[in-house]
Design a protein around this nucleic acid. Structure first.
Length: 805
DNA sequence: GAGGTTCCCCTTTTT
DNA sequence: GGGGAACCTC
């Protein structure tokens, strides 16, 4: 059986790759007249100088208020160049700019995303933090590649310290304005966990490696920009003066770096208008501080606060359910959702057999409704918690011939062939880019293997050369044979030849890269899959041509690369495409659709397993807000779905309905062929084979915990699965829950350290357990380390203690 | 030392 | 199902 190809939407179009972030949907065509505002909306629009906080519930006309307010400022004589509006996504920025332009033809205010704004700032002023203007922006894959190199240099085992997790922590540190230096100092003064011990070493080295490559990661854009403003009062003052009126959308999602950026630009001219909704704060995991919006009035004395609570979007029944749901959040200021439209039908809970059934039912309903003329595919959106759920939906839509689009703009740029091509472009734009060099040098195969690459890279680092010089002079690098040097030199010659075309329009350059690098030729001679790669790479030429067209001669290679790097998934959604929209709940914020499905509303999925495992109520609340965002996107018809079982990573799992389902008034439509809450009808035999071979079961007590026995839970097999997860990660837990280091399972279980036991701690070294109490996850152990006077106490399940001997 | 193969790891959400 | 490291072969 051959693998079915990933389905493509029935109506593919080149615009999918468009970097022009599509025109706004909702609201553009609504007439804008002076009398169409409610009193609070009007108050927000009319507010002139001084800080303003607009607490805007879902569907309360927030974007409209912001755009009208910008227009009003200009009407009052404010120079449009003094107005800066900041959003989180390109799409929101484009939409806002267009709507302002529609209100005031010819007016162009600067509407930008946080990241793009910072990028501009750094291109101009970045020398102060060690960046040249042609710096590269690294995506996650680039970051990982770079960090891997750092790890091997620092002799850190990438298996024990997965780069992804280290990068997560580095990202979090950056979001909190902890530079590498501050992080290192902090670690010297405070006791950290073992990951922090590694980070104290790795983070500064990673940061240096970024600068050696003249590159930044996403979080650096913010961190460096704020650092610039911190270090240079003159620059801060200059920019504060230049941007006298600042509007920030989705303020509840700002992290510390973003908060400080905004604050730095709003000192002398605190005409800051922040809009947002604490109930829609869904980026806590990225460092967003919901407190930023809650403390706005304290931060900006004299701030005026306006609440927009009337909802013009959803039916009464949908709002009622949304209200019921969000009322379960404890850490919350009570707020009303006031409906102004019709009551509508109650939202529906659709209970399905499995993931495929769920997707089929949805596709069929859309198909039938379209044929009956009830609503069009474009009126429908399907939201899910994790991207992996899109696959089943895509297949079902394809089977039924329902046109759809997936909000996954970055997926295209994640393709290997696209990345390879971009690596050439990045190297042309920024010859210091080590990651781009390593990626491009042996693609297509030039006989330059890992060893030679490393030698050339080290040679460049040692002599402060850019990669082109280093490649040309590869023969001087120690250990590089004559033959290898020739091969690397050949690559340098390719880049040199291309660099003559690196100025001017981008599309011809991309074309030249494909042709002259040999990539196109290699793919053209390959099998069908490689031919597809060539076709995809050709689409990159199309995207570049599109960019050239939009920029009308003002574009540059740097600009094109920046645009591709800062693209967001949600940016590629086309409202006018006539298709069903599939996207994550995170990407759904700010949008609205007549008909909405939220799929996979199950325990471990929504709320996500990780939030349940964290035992942090606030994480569950964020999951609830995520569902709240999904629910409040619906205008007329809302369906939440869940299934009895579902394949997770190729393994069948029984699914427990989400707790959130009990918190809303829903009409049940049970197609599952079992009991409405999934407590009956499962067959343990279905899944037993998944566990038969698990060596973990040889020690059923290994993951002992204070959880009830699996059989006591409503859906027994789901619980078994949970237990299995816990069992397989027991060793990881022992190591601070994240490392994959193997730890022998001891008879009393890995967490049950006995008094007298010798243990090793990555930071403190060897020690002896002097005291132990509590059980399972709560067990605490005291350890006297060799060089210490007093014992230290750890939570056994959290600490990276390893038994020795 | 390059290149191919196999195995084993992980896999939320995103700019 | 994808990517990377470890292993093997040339």
């Amino acid at each position: 059986m051959s693998r079915p190809p990933r389905p493509r939407p029935p109506q593919p179009s080149p615009e999918e790759l468009s970097v022009d972030h599509s025109r706004a949907a909702a609201g553009v065509d609504r007439p804008e007249t002076p009398d169409d505002l409610t009193p609070p909306q009007r108050a927000a629009v009319e507010h002139f100088r001084g800080p303003l906080l607009v607490l805007a519930g879902p569907g309360s006309g927030k974007t409209r208020v912001i755009t009208r307010r910008i227009a009003r400022l200009v009407e009052r004589g404010v120079d449009p160049r003094q107005i800066l509006a900041i959003t989180f996504t390109n799409k929101a920025a484009g939409e806002m700019a267009d709507r302002v332009a529609a209100l005031l033809p010819g007016t162009r205010v600067w509407v930008s995303t946080f990241h793009r704004f910072c990028s501009r700032l750094l291109r101009r002023y970045g020398q102060a933090v060690g960046l040249k203007e042609n710096f590269s922006i690294y995506d996650t894959a680039d970051q990982t590649a770079l960090l891997r190199r750092v790890l091997s240099e620092k002799d850190v085992d990438a298996a024990a310290y997965p780069p992804g997790q280290l990068l997560n922590r580095i990202g979090r540190a950056k979001n909190e304005m902890l530079t590498a230096e501050r992080f290192r100092l902090k670690f010297e003064h405070e006791v950290g966990d073992h990951i922090e011990a590694v980070l104290a070493k790795v983070y500064p080295a990673y940061q240096k490696a970024l600068l050696d490559s003249n590159a930044v990661d996403f979080d650096d854009l913010l961190l460096h920009a704020v650092t610039l403003l911190e270090d240079s009062p003159e620059l801060r003052e200059h920019l504060d003066d230049r941007h006298r009126f600042i509007l920030v959308d989705e303020y509840q999602d700002t992290n510390l770096a973003q908060y400080q950026l905004v604050k730095a630009l709003s000192q002398d001219h605190p005409n800051l208008c922040a809009t947002g909704d604490p109930d829609q704060s869904i980026y806590g995991w990225r460092g967003a501080k919901i407190e930023n919006i809650l403390r706005f009035e304290r931060d900006y004395p004299g701030a005026k606060a306006i609440r927009l609570e009337e909802n013009f979007r959803s039916t009464g029944a949908i709002l009622f359910a949304a209200d019921e749901l969000i009322a379960n959040n404890v850490h919350r200021k009570a707020k009303k959702l006031i409906g102004v439209g019709e009551e509508g039908e109650a939202p529906r809970r659709l209970y399905c057999r499995d993931g495929r059934h769920e997707a089929d039912l949805i596709a069929e309903e859309i198909h039938d409704a379209a044929h009956a003329g009830k609503y069009k595919p474009a009126d429908v959106a399907v939201f899910y918690r994790v991207n992996s759920l899109s696959r089943e939906l895509e297949l079902a839509m394809s089977r039924r011939g329902v046109p759809y689009q997936v909000a996954a703009g970055t997926a295209f740029y994640d393709r290997m062939e696209v990345k390879d091509t971009l690596a050439y472009l990045k190297l042309l734009a920024n010859p210091d880019d080590r990651v781009a060099f390593a990626r491009a040098v042996n693609k297509p195969k030039r006989g330059v293997g890992n060893t030679t690459q490393h030698r050339v890279l080290n040679f460049a680092d040692a002599h402060g050369l850019d990669m082109l010089e280093a490649a040309r002079r590869a023969g001087e690098a120690s250990g590089v044979s004559k033959r290898a040097a020739t091969l690397v030199g050949r690559f340098a010659a390719v880049i040199d030849a291309l660099s003559e075309k690196a100025h001017g329009p981008v599309a011809p350059l991309v074309r030249a890269v494909l042709d002259e690098s040999g990539l196109a030729k290699a793919w053209a001679e390959g099998d069908e899959e490689e031919m597809q790669r060539l076709a995809n790479a050709d689409e990159l030429v199309t995207a570049a041509a599109q960019y050239d067209h939009e920029q009308q001669g003002a574009g540059s290679l740097d600009g094109f690369l920046e645009t591709t790097a800062l693209l967001a998934d949600s940016d590629t959604v086309e409202p006018e495409s006539g298709r069903v929209t599939l996207m994550t709940l995170h990407a759904a914020k700010g949008l609205e659709f007549p008909v909405v499905y939220v799929v996979g509303v199950e325990q471990n999925l929504l709320p996500h397993e990780r939030s349940l495992r964290s035992h942090d109520g606030r994480e569950i609340e964020e999951e609830r807000r995520l569902l709240f965002v999904g629910v409040t996107r619906a205008m007329k018809k809302l369906t939440v779905t869940h299934t009895r079982k579902r394949e997770v990573r190729g393994r069948p799992q029984h699914c427990v309905p989400s707790d959130f389902l009990t918190e809303m008034t829903l009409d049940l439509d049970d197609r599952s062929g079992g009991d409405a809450w999934g407590s009956a009808g499962y067959d343990i035999e279905d899944f037993s084979q998944d566990y038969d071979d698990s060596p973990e079961w040889e020690h059923p007590q290994a993951g002992e915990s204070d959880e009830p026995e699996p059989t006591e839970r409503p859906a027994g097999v789901g619980s078994l699965t949970q237990n299995k997860l816990r069992l397989t990660t027991a060793a990881g837990l022992l190591n601070g829950e994240t490392t994959g280091a193997a730890v022998p399972v001891r008879e009393e279980g890995p967490l049950g350290f006995k008094v007298g036991q010798t243990v090793r701690h990555p930071r403190y070294g060897l020690g002896t357990v002097t005291h132990s109490d509590g059980s399972a996850r709560n067990r605490r152990v005291s350890v006297l380390f060799e060089d210490a006077e007093n014992p230290k106490t750890f939570v056994a399940s959290k600490a990276p203690l390893q038994p020795v001997g």
